[in-house]
Amino acid sequence: MSAPKSMRSLVPPRSIPVVRAALSLLAGVAAAVFFSYLLFRLGLPSQPFIYVSF
């Protein structure tokens, strides 16, 4: 059984910096989405609102 090829070997060496930059940019965007959701969740009450007849 042959060992799995690393991702690096699938990318032409000249493209590696571009791929890294693109992946880094995407990771940054993902962090921004997470940060935005975190702020949203932190603003919500920790206890659910349960309606009792008024």
Binding site: L23, S24, G28, F35
Partner: peptide, 13 residues
């Protein structure tokens, strides 16, 4: 990770 691109991603996102 390339820090400058990551920070750019956070700012853009």
């Amino acid at each position: 990770i390339r820090p400058s691109w990551f920070i750019a991603g956070v700012a853009l996102g």
